[in-house]
Amino acid sequence: MNVVGRTIWVIIAGALITVIYFISTFSIFDEPASTIIDNSCDYEGIRRATVYSLSGNAVTNESIHVAIDHCDQNFDWQSSQDIFTGEPIGSGQVKAVWNGFDSLVVEYSSIRRISTKGFHDFGDSSLKINIVYKELESPQTEN
């Protein structure tokens, strides 16, 4: 084998090793990272509203969610029951505020709403939560 042939084999081997390394470390479909923005329990400490965000990846956009669960459980976004999902537009914000025992107000600004629920039932009609959505004005930027 001459020098040119050996050089070609070294280049091919190097390219193959690079491709294998790239494929094994590439994370295009990784699970998004969740970040809890805020959470608050109702005044009896039974139900919790959690506002959290999911980072995007190569195939999904960043999103902001509001979920309802029990105050005495650790929050797990994968098993939570979302009542609000939206995509932030710029610096989108979401806030969940308890307004009495059976009412939750979800305030949001600079958010493209994807899905909402009008109420949430824990399997017991006495724990039903009515949900009100309030779009706040987006902060104006000066040009």
Results as ranks from 00 to 15, higher is better:
A15Q: 08
T116I: 06
G118L: 03
Y133C: 03
I83F: 03
T116R: 03
D121I: 09
S110W: 03
K95Y: 07
K128M: 06
H70I: 13
M1C: 12
Y133M: 00
S53T: 12
G100N: 05
S55A: 11
L136I: 08
D76T: 08
D102E: 12
W9N: 14
A49M: 05
V94C: 02
E87Y: 15
I89A: 09
C71A: 02
A96D: 13
E62R: 13
K95Q: 15
F26C: 13
V10K: 06
Q93E: 15
G123N: 04
R113H: 03
H120Y: 14
I37C: 04
T85S: 15
G123L: 00
N61G: 06
G56D: 06
T60Q: 10
S79G: 09
D76P: 01
N74K: 09
L104I: 10
L127G: 05
D38H: 10
E62K: 14
E137P: 15
D69C: 01
E137G: 14
S34R: 08
S91G: 07
I129A: 08
V59E: 09
S24I: 09
V51R: 00
E87M: 12
G100T: 07
S40T: 15
S79L: 11
S110E: 11
D121L: 09
V10Y: 09
H65R: 05
G5I: 10
T25A: 09
I37R: 07
A13N: 02
S115H: 11
Y108N: 01
Y133K: 04
C71V: 05
S63N: 10
Y43C: 02
S125H: 13
E44F: 12
S80V: 04
G14D: 00
S91N: 15
N39L: 14
I111Y: 05
V19T: 14
I89N: 14
R47G: 07
G5E: 14
V51N: 02
S53Y: 04
N2H: 01
I129S: 07
H120C: 03
S125R: 07
E31Q: 14
E87F: 12
W9F: 08
S24N: 12
S109H: 05
T18Q: 04
S27V: 08
E44R: 11
G123C: 01
